[in-house]
Simulated scan of single mutants.
Amino acid sequence: MDIIVGIDVSKDRLDIPIVPSGEVFHVGNGHAGIEALVDRLKAKHSADGPCVVALEATGGFEMLAAAELSSAGFAVIVVNPAQVRAYANAIGRRAKTDPIDAEVIAAFVAATRPEIRPLRDAETQALSALVDRRRQIMQMIVAEENRLRMVVETQAQKSIKRLLAALRRELDSLDADLDEQIRKSPIWRVRERLLVSVPGVGSTTARTLLAEMPELGSLDRRQIASLAGLAPWTRQSGQWKGKSFIGGGRGKVRAVLFMAALVASRHNPMLKVFRDRLVAAGKPRIVAIVATMRKLLTILNAIIRDNKPWQNA
């Protein structure tokens, strides 16, 4: 990494330091500002060597800059804000301003050299947005159904029922949009059929994996578990051994795998035996379910890698 560009992203502005030159500037977080940034980095790229651009994930405000910088040919890394903050604390950078945060991002990338993964293409981002919206609508439906069970006043019940009807129509519309998005890609159509061939895996789980984990099938079982945040990490010192935990990774993937593992542990013969064996050995049920999630993800990874559907043993 010859030149590292750290970018602190806010709604209206990008703060940018360049390492090792020490140059610091800012641009607007819009098409005009990002275009000016691309031109400036291209001039530096041709003069001083290749650039790596790092941005924090900031709830979507980073997406335009990441997409345009990647399209311009730069290696772009979207880093985890929690990891950057932990690094800042470790090196004693307690102060927090946008320019300081941008410098810490650049220093974090220089120190840790994270792997550069290809960003999701426009079609995958569109699929992810639809999957996210469907999840939000489902959450609203569940919330309104819970309210309906609690409300006794007739007028309030009518209001909730009207809203539920509208939300269910929107859910049907989103499902149709998702079907259309999947049909656009022969690869997605094939992979969805492969994924749903596994008992316990439905279209929601399959489409979330397609949108949020395009690496599925290209990594080994340890790497894919780590990417999903399902690789256990241990805590021990000397003779003391603490409990193992999971965390980090892609929360949306873990959420759908949790529900899929609950279903699979009842209806998938292989995974039912696997979960029951862990429980019989004295493992807490939640530990057994997490292990089942990891086993299920390993199976799905192998199915996509080998391009072969599930086969009952």
Rank of each mutant, 00 (worst) to 15 (best):
V131C: 00
Q239M: 11
R134L: 04
R169A: 14
A156H: 13
P232D: 12
E170M: 11
K272T: 12
V9Q: 11
A281F: 08
V273R: 15
N307W: 08
A264T: 13
R135T: 12
H267C: 13
S46P: 05
A231N: 12
P214T: 07
S46F: 12
A302D: 13
A111F: 07
F61Q: 05
V19P: 05
D101S: 04
A143H: 03
R235Q: 12
A228I: 07
K283Q: 10
R135A: 09
P20C: 07
T234L: 13
V76H: 06
K11S: 10
E35I: 07
E35M: 12
S244C: 12
K96S: 03
N89R: 03
I91W: 00
F245M: 13
W233E: 13
V263W: 10
V24R: 15
A32V: 14
A288G: 07
V196Q: 04
S10A: 15
A166Y: 11
G251S: 15
L257N: 15
S203T: 11
L163E: 12
A107M: 09
K308C: 04
T97G: 07
R193C: 01
R113C: 05
W310I: 04
V198G: 02
G6Y: 10
L127V: 00
T124W: 01
V273M: 10
V109E: 04
M259F: 13
F74D: 08
Q236N: 14
G200D: 03
C51Y: 08
I105V: 08
